[in-house]
Design a protein around this nucleic acid. Structure first.
Lengths: 344, 344
DNA sequence: CAGGTCGTCTGAATCGTTTCACAACGGAGG
DNA sequence: CCTCCGTTGTGAAACGATTCAGACGACCTG
């Protein structure tokens, strides 16, 4: 139905090759002819068929981006960073949401493979899907985002989450907290495990006490998960109740905060909270959240750069980049406890 | 490089037509042959080339979704609603962010046209782009999201924003506020203009006083825009300073709240705030935000349904759907002022 | 004037899949 | 034995854009 290049050629009285040249190498066509062709294009409302281009070229002009949770602003910030790099390169991004579910992730990867994307950026679910390897074997570059590559034969852009966990925990320990909760999902995401490891190390060094740390694993890394965890904490007997929490991300932290406020627990006076990611909403929260800041957009743009470089071929060296997180202290942790760490 | 259907045919010792049949109408192929072909597919790691399919079929298996601000959780919720409908239909969504900039919007629409998407869902920038008409002339259905269609020849799914504005303003007026600010972007978005109109009508009816309403137009409908507006308000002489604000969206409201808190203005005691959209973060804000709730996911899924129906062809009737918003009252407006409405 | 170069344009082959008219075969029915 | 039918499988013709070898003048050069 829509006009094809052949229609344009006919209308302008030239060959299809010439129309293609007007489109792709206009300098090869005389002014007069070029004008006639452009007129025909305008007259017919011709729009290139990208699929036909692909088919000929063997690859598309798109890349895939698969994230764990599109509703988490952390990932929209990453996406923005990706776009900043990919758009100027003339490529489009296909954004997919796996919802932290391996089946959805696999399905998306299949679609991306069928689309013959030039590459895939992905924050994978806990287990690295075999679909990822199969993409790579097929020559489609894959760059892991916010996740370290397990082997040196692929690129990744991550954050030192052990350090991040440590920063968060040390901050609380310095302020006198001696019973701390770590709130992370049960999903087994390495990012979360590393944060946990950092917290554990810091707590052990400071207290020598393994029991000083309470680990809670709500089902999902969401606001609802945080509320759930906070309710559990409030339900504990005072003597065992932690006085502070490190949350595996800011959504959890916001949920914890919400539930604490609802239950009449004062933050930070009765309970201190540290989040992770430092999404914009952390600063706007009921009590502005102390959070471990990651370079969100930079993660995306660096990953996209590496992907484009790899897609270009010719002497690409795989890089496992690791950014350092920093702690942003806000009100949610701004209180010193006496050494007893007595619960309120 | 990757295996084609021809390679599979050769490997299995059958013709390409048979392979295609195995893929698309397996019931036409004998068990024995089908198995041989499937083995060959597995052995070669064959993946269909979607571009080639598409070229033959004349249309792709994707739809486009163009939003104003991907960083606004309102739109990610809309996107989720879209996905809920589109995914089961076996189509993929290409998500584009126009950033409220017409050039970016046009560029995205061009790309979508080249991709031969089955249809486009869009929350357009202020002026309806001519690219939209050109898509529709080309037979590509377009459904407007969160924006009423100006003519009955196309589908749209919107919200009664005049009512929403009125709900917000009446709520504040009932609580005794007599000097109210409307904070909306200067972008000329009809959604914002309607909200404004609703506020104006309510204020006029209640006070008969045109000057009771102060209109502020920060550059963007973002948290930063809200902060900017709040700073302006705080800078006003007490006698002219409003005691409450209706914000055109929740991001603005969060920004206003942040800046007010920073400047030591108590919310809601000294200044009441009503937001719009009721994104999840509104409830988790420093002071939980009163907000005008829109059915976010439903907007997306209904729009997607209409789009798919139109794309299917055969007797599609255009529908301009309008949802009714509701007011969710939270702490940010929970105070009664005396009739003087004296500033603090 | 023969030969060469340059600028411009043509037309056919190609990419991978689907589709469709048709061939090959075996069995049933007359 | 012939015909007819149903079941399976074949192979070529699309789909639309790109690319490339080569045609064709026009112009220059020796």
């Amino acid at each position: 139905m829509p006009a094809s290049i052949r229609d344009v050629a006919e209308h302008a009285g030239v060959s299809v090759g010439t129309v293609s040249n007007v489109l792709n190498r206009p300098e090869l066509v005389s002014d007069h002819t070029r004008e006639r062709v452009l007129d025909a294009i305008a007259a017919l409302g011709f729009v290139r068929n990208e699929s036909a281009r692909h088919l000929r070229a063997g690859h598309s002009r798109t890349i895939g981006l698969v994230v764990l949770d599109i509703a988490n602003p952390f990932f929209t910030d990453v996406a923005r960073g990706v776009d900043d790099v990919v758009d100027p390169a003339g490529l489009a991004v296909i954004l997919c949401n796996s919802d932290d579910r391996p089946e959805k992730e696999s399905a998306h990867l299949d679609v991306l493979a069928e689309q013959r994307v030039q590459g895939v950026l992905i924050t994978p679910t806990a287990e690295l899907s075999p679909h990822l390897d199969s993409l790579r074997r097929r020559g489609i570059p894959v760059v892991l985002v916010d996740r370290r590559a397990p082997t040196p034969d692929q690129c990744s852009v991550a954050v030192d989450d052990v350090l991040g966990g440590r920063l968060a925990a040390e901050h609380l320990l310095e302020r006198g907290h001696r019973r701390i909760a770590f709130i992370g999902g049960a999903s087994g995401l390495p990012q979360v495990q590393e944060r946990h490891a950092g917290v554990v190390a810091a707590v052990r060094e400071a207290t020598g006490d393994e029991d000083a740390l309470l680990v809670l694993s709500p089902e999902h890394l969401t606001v609802a998960g945080g509320r759930e965890a906070a309710a559990r904490i409030v339900g504990l007997p005072a003597a065992r109740r932690p006085t502070a929490a490190v949350c595996a991300n800011d959504l959890l932290a916001l949920g914890v905060l919400q539930e604490m406020v609802r239950q009449g627990v004062r933050v930070p006076d009765d309970f201190a909270i540290v989040g992770y990611d430092d999404i914009d909403f952390a600063a706007a929260a009921a009590v502005p959240l102390t959070s471990v800041r990651k370079p969100r957009a930079a993660l995306g743009s660096r990953a996209a750069e590496l992907l484009l470089d790899e897609a270009r071929g010719e002497g690409h060296a795989h890089v496992q980049e690791v950014f350092e997180p920093t702690l942003v202290v806000r009100e949610s942790s701004m209180v010193f406890r006496d050494r007893e760490g007595a619960a309120p």
